[in-house]
């Protein structure tokens, strides 16, 4: 094999505590046959600091101290890794806990009686761009792994270059349509009634959910698992970024008084109500003359100096003596007894 094979090593943050693990793997049979082109912490990929080129690597190795059955891996990165692998490229280090995510993202899982385990980027075109065939039916696709290819068991590890499927992939790679097809439908649109159909960046999320479902299923049994103490969620010394705006007396417009007002606004409001009441007491003693003056019984007449008194409090001026009385309807005489009462 004269062709040099490029590899990418991705590292779980905890590996920094166990450098020997990384060393062992780098010296192991898989990576030693490749040129390690790059090595990143998985976080860098996850937060988007690094975005690897398309179809760059033959091998990706994810180094983690986690047990295979307990691997926690962001499923949204699986399509990213798929993209950066060459056709028939291999991904080592993940496990069957992410089986569904692997399959829907176009990997084949190769398992050789436990001695050999990796994912292969499928070279056959139709598997890869899930987004297209699933457009408008994303949910079915994500939740119906039965329709997806089953495992392929290899008895022997075949060198990548010589595998027949790899050969096919190479030829496919030359097809101009290939890249276009692997691309997702980029226009993210939302329909009126149904967000799901067109929102294709939701796909990876739904596949992510498959691996999360178990946490919800466990929950149905009230006995399982401890709960955190709510009080621990509040840090004693939390330096909050929340900036409070002080009470509104200084603002141009008068604001309502605070509940525990100490600036005097509340007293002002109370006084105002008092004085209003006093005014109302005077109003209530309309003389005949005054009543004619403000005769609301005349059809269409909106009385008062401002023309708004009859319309109700929503329209009355702030000093209007009729504040607190209902709107006066044309054609109705005012019966003050019906509109006021005592405690």
């Amino acid at each position: 094999m004269t062709v040099s094979r490029d590899s990418l090593v991705l590292i779980h943050p905890a590996v920094t505590q166990q450098p020997e693990l990384l060393e062992t793997i780098e010296k192991g049979s898989i990576l030693s046959e490749t040129t390690i082109v790059a090595q990143y912490l998985i976080n860098k990929l996850n937060d988007g600091t690094i975005s690897p080129d398309d179809e760059k690597y033959d091998v990706i190795y994810y180094v983690t101290p986690e047990k295979p059955e307990a691997i926690q891996f962001p499923p949204k990165l699986i399509p990213v890794l798929h993209k950066t692998l060459k056709p028939s490229g291999r991904l080592y280090g993940l496990s069957d806990t992410l089986k569904v995510d692997a399959l829907i993202n176009g990997f084949e899982i190769v398992s050789n009686n436990g001695s050999e385990y990796y994912w292969v980027k499928e070279s056959r075109e139709k598997k890869a761009p899930v987004s297209i065939s699933l457009k408008g039916n994303m949910k079915n696709g994500a939740s119906a792994p039965v329709a997806l290819p089953s495992f392929k068991k290899l008895n022997k590890t075949q060198p990548i270059g010589s595998s027949p499927s790899a050969g096919l992939a190479v030829s496919l790679k030359k097809l101009p349509t290939f890249k276009k097809l692997t691309k997702k439908v980029s226009a993210i649109k939302l329909t009126d009634s149904d967000l799901e159909d067109d929102d294709d960046d939701l796909e990876s999320d739904d596949s992510a959910n498959n691996s999360k479902t178990k946490f919800f299923d466990d929950f149905d049994d009230p006995e399982t698992g401890d709960s955190i103490d709510e009080d621990d969620l509040i840090a004693e010394t939390e330096e909050d970024t929340i900036t409070m705006i002080q009470c509104g007396k200084s603002k141009q417009r008068r604001r309502k008084a605070c509940k525990d007002c100490s600036c005097g606004l509340k007293e002002m409001e109370e006084q105002e109500i008092e004085s209003r009441r006093a005014k109302q007491q005077q109003v209530i003693k309309f003389s005949e003359e005054e009543l004619t003056e403000i005769d609301f019984t005349i059809e269409g007449k909106k009385v008062g100096g401002c023309g708004s008194c009859a319309l109700g409090d929503a329209f009355r001026c702030s000093g209007c003596p009729y504040l607190g009385l209902p709107a006066f309807k044309p054609g109705q005489s005012i019966n003050l007894n019906s509109i006021s009462d005592d405690l």
Partner: peptide, 28 residues
């Protein structure tokens, strides 16, 4: 809320969610 308080939940459980929060309180 009872579910979210379970101590066994993984740190990426809600990494598919974009959230915005508003608290209404009374500082007395």
């Amino acid at each position: 809320w009872q579910f979210l308080k379970k101590s066994t939940l993984p740190a990426d459980l809600l990494d598919h969610v974009n959230v915005a929060m508003l608290g209404l309180g009374d500082s007395s």
